[in-house]
Write a protein that binds this DNA or RNA. Structure first.
Lengths: 333, 333
DNA sequence: TTCCTGGATGTAAGCGTTTGCAAGGTTGGT
DNA sequence: ACCAACCTTGCAAACGCTTACATCCAGGAA
């Protein structure tokens, strides 16, 4: 920067002002500085700039499973808006207990980010305290976090719609594939969706059968296990509501291998759900990443910030994986 | 840090040395400093530390499609090893032309990262020059980049094996679904796999039919379009080799909708390929991310660095999407 | 002419570390 | 008892910016 200042015949202060587009620089000087900077192909050191200004221009993004479809979409969505405003995106994947402990033990975000985006993470109270102690705006995608902004869907309503769809098809014995709450992962949506399942059945006057609710780790394998177990029941369900499409995929896989026929409805509208003909509840995932990042960006620039909550719509997408209960008691159509 | 120094009764220099685990600090002093730091719950400012030391402890990761399965796997793999060594991962998603231009126009990596990981990106010569001008170690996953390290598979051999599998099943009219080279995206693997396809057919004495090679954008839609076009041919292929599983999924989708039957082999062994019964060429994607990050980490710590090349094995995974040519001329089994 | 105002620019003090160098203190060999 | 060698520690100068404050200058009002 000194070189640029010398070449333009001004002070480094003026160079700094020019390069950041501050208003109080004369046009003539501005041109001279920009030209000098260009000819030296100079760029400011973001690190020095951060140290001096105290702003990191970085958003920390915390996800439990970076490689899963849902999270990839959110991250990509957030990345697109952050990049556009030249903000850095620092990715933290804390899917297992050790990673989580390391994360909250060291809290590497301290002094490192101006904002935090968390995606479908269930935090303990102390973890939330830790996060809030960072003193930066936080936005959660997928569920509420006290003190943080939030972009999500109405999980209860959406899950309820899914179960109602099965009820409307005449199903009365309806199973649910839900995720573990052991590792306190995924609980936010799991909890809401499970409750919606129970309430909706109760409203329809159907008693809840404990054995029809499976708790498995998230992913294909989990879904497959769950469905296998459901199929071994003396009175297996005629329909199953899966907490996510990936779980539903696993369920479909189990069904195909065993040759059994059970209606399955998923949740998310995964990119491949159409191909697999999975009835599901669609939510716009990428866009949630976009909106969350936008919310953070505004909070960062405004200085002040009151957490907002954004509710995204969902749609029931009907495909061939669900059918009326009567039709396939023996054989699929 | 000053506070810690004061509380421990030493200078900031000693605190710094202690906190970084340098050897020349007496045990007694070390304990005192650590205790002081803990009681003040102090952490060093990474930014100040970076400015002073000149090292960013950050790896820039450049991907074309952050949300696609393959890239998610690589990123997750890399993240796991970087996090373990407390290195930051800065994600750049430059999938479209504008993003790419912005990226190479400003070259935001300058002064910002100690190493670069690129995933399946086809760069122009000038772009490679730009990247090398950063003066940091670079590792490419998926293909060679001159001057950079490399973790990849033998695309030619693997693709050849795929085509040979189809040949062995008796297919003679074999199509290929490949990706665009318009946006100079994906060319590295596209090129190698397409050449392998052509050479393998040629070796078998089969003339290449231009109309059997489709170029489409990557993704499900691309695969679907490609297969639809292939099916409209007067003499459609009996088998198709898709450059990636996602393209193959699209192809399967088109087949299902049109009720036609064509053998399809994919590439990657996507997480859902088993469910869709797709014959494919398996490669260990996550692990490639791990290895690439490890390579970079070593390069960063060593100071010196000569690009290495790592070749990962691939396996042909036989499933139900490919069958002998004679069997299904009329109806699937 | 004088004073005031406001915009453009320069000066220099941070920002919170790292690190080369020097100083002081120990230890052990002679 | 003396000196070399080594280990521990402190001092202070970077690192490359930002920014509060001071300065200067031109133009307008009185």
């Amino acid at each position: 920067m000194e070189d640029v200042a010398r070449l333009a015949g001004v002070s480094t202060a003026t160079v700094s002002r020019t390069l950041r587009g501050l208003p109080n620089v004369s046009e003539e000087t501005r041109d001279r500085v920009l030209q000098a900077a260009a000819s030296l192909s100079y760029v400011v050191s973001p690190i020095a700039s951060r140290l001096a200004s105290g702003r990191t221009h970085t958003v920390g993004v915390i996800v439990p499973y970076a490689s899963r479809w849902f999270f990839g979409q959110i991250v990509a969505g957030a990345e697109s808006v952050l990049r556009e405003h030249s903000l850095d995106l620092l990715l933290y994947n804390i899917g297992d207990i050790p990673a989580r402990q390391r994360f909250f033990g060291a809290l590497p975000l301290r002094r490192r980010v101006d904002a935090v985006l968390t995606v479908a993470m269930q935090f303990t109270d102390s973890e939330i305290t830790d996060l809030l102690s960072l003193g930066v705006p936080i936005v959660a995608v997928g569920h509420k976090v006290p003190g943080a902004g939030c972009v999500r869907i109405d999980d209860v309503a959406a899950a309820s719609a899914a179960v109602q769809h099965l009820l409307a098809l005449g199903h009365r014995r309806i199973g649910m594939i839900s995720t573990f709450n052991d590792q306190s992962m995924f609980l936010p949506v799991a909890h809401a969706r499970r409750r919606a399942y129970a309430d909706t059945l109760a409203d329809a006057g159907i008693p809840i059968a404990e054995e029809l609710v499976m708790s498995v780790p998230h992913g294909l394998d989990g879904g497959e296990q769950a469905m296998r177990r459901l199929l071994t029941l003396a009175d297996p369900p005629t329909a199953v509501f899966a907490e996510s499409d990936e779980l539903a995929f696993g369920a479909l896989s189990a069904l195909r291998r065993t040759g059994r026929h059970v209606s399955v409805i998923g949740f998310d509208d995964h990119e491949l759900s159409a191909l697999l003909d999975l009835t599901t509840v669609r939510q716009r995932v990428f866009e949630q990443g976009v909106l969350a990042a936008g919310m953070l960006r505004r909070a960062m620039t405004a200085g002040t910030w009151t957490p907002e909550e954004l509710l995204m719509p969902t749609t029931l997408v009907l495909r061939a994986s669900t059918w009326p209960v009567a039709v396939r008691t023996t054989e699929p159509g």
